[in-house]
Design a protein around this nucleic acid. Structure first.
Length: 298
DNA sequence: AAATATGTCAACCGCCTCGGC
DNA sequence: TGCCGAGGCGGTTGACATATT
């Protein structure tokens, strides 16, 4: 009997990342509990999802927010409040976590600036600094229904400090009381305005890129694993033609009990076109396929 | 150079929503 | 119709990096 290992927490290792990317490539980025189980990561589904969404997703941008992005965050926050995921959908490649972190930092700075300026002068003036970039009138807004205000009050939920910021004289009118749930019409509207949601962008990104990285991302299929027959777990969505596979390798010793054989894993994963499939619903066995690369031995 | 403050960001927690049964 | 589980979301924490004293 195999003891259930304790759920892992804390920072992800490179190997874990790699494993997760592989399994998301296989099963898609929805069934997180399933992925957590079959991958043998000893992480929760939530943890896997978070890691993928915030760090591993190929569509993510890295680095500092651009002034345009900063401005958009301010605008959208004035409109929607702390609806980070919703705001993130308007900033391709940025995650809710990233925006949340940015806002926190940004607002802390603002609050401090305000404190300073109000203690040094009796008549408080709107804070400047980073929002100066934000106030450029040449920036086009994603919305056409714009009215002008001087500054917007807000209460920073993290510091509890009531403050205000300069939106650059812009605030999107209406829609302030909007409650949860973005309608389909709204999504359509976004498209018309040239605003793609993260979902849209990620959908595009996750389409199979045959010329690029092979079946590594976004592929699902009812692969046939040698004499073990078709995988009962993976319902065939659009499996690649078996003829596409130069080699396949199948062994019950490799991933038995979800333990990766390091040696073979290294070889296997060194190929960017490799992919993996679990082949029985006990999660005990795995088959590995290699597409268009060197054959595996084992 | 060391100590301290501040900033950044990955990750966890708990609550909510939604879909399946 | 209510229950349950999975996924999603916002709030929060803590580790690490960088700046300042």
């Amino acid at each position: 009997m195999v003891l259930q290992e304790e759920i892992r927490k804390g920072p992800w290792t490179e190997q874990e990342d790699f494993k997760l990317v592989c399994f998301v490539g296989l099963f898609g980025d929805r069934r997180w509990d399933f992925i957590a189980k079959v991958s043998g990561l000893n992480r929760t589904g939530k943890s896997c999802r978070l890691r993928w969404v915030n760090y591993l997703h190929p569509g993510l941008k890295r680095g500092k927010m651009t002034p345009q992005e900063e401005r958009l965050v301010l605008e959208l926050h004035s409109k929607w409040g702390n609806r980070w995921s919703r705001i993130a959908r308007k900033l391709p490649g940025r995650t809710d976590n990233e925006i949340k972190n940015y806002w926190r930092t940004h607002m802390r700075k603002k609050a401090q600036e305000k404190k300073r300026s109000s203690s040094s002068s009796p008549s408080p003036s709107p804070p400047s600094s980073s929002s100066a970039a934000v106030s450029s009138p040449s920036q086009s807004s994603s919305s056409s229904n714009i009215t002008t205000v001087e500054a917007l009050p807000f209460q920073d939920s993290t510091t509890g400090v009531e403050s205000f910021y300069d939106t650059g004289g812009l605030v999107v009118s209406g829609d302030h009381d909007e409650v949860k749930g973005e309608t389909e019409e709204k999504k359509h509207e976004d498209h018309e305005q040239g605003c793609y949601s993260m979902d849209d962008i990620w959908k595009e990104i996750s389409l199979p890129e045959v010329n690029d990285i092979g079946p590594f991302y976004g592929q699902q299929g009812g692969y046939n694993c040698g004499d073990l027959g078709p995988c009962p777990l993976i319902e065939a969505a659009a499996p690649p033609s078996p003829a596409m596979w130069d080699h396949y390798y199948c062994s019950d010793s490799l991933w038995k009990n979800n333990i990766l054989d390091e040696e073979v894993t290294k070889t296997f994963f060194s190929s960017p076109t490799a992919t993996t499939a679990i082949i029985d619903n006990q999660f005990n066995y795995a088959a590995r396929f290699e597409y268009g690369g060197a054959s595996l031995t084992g």
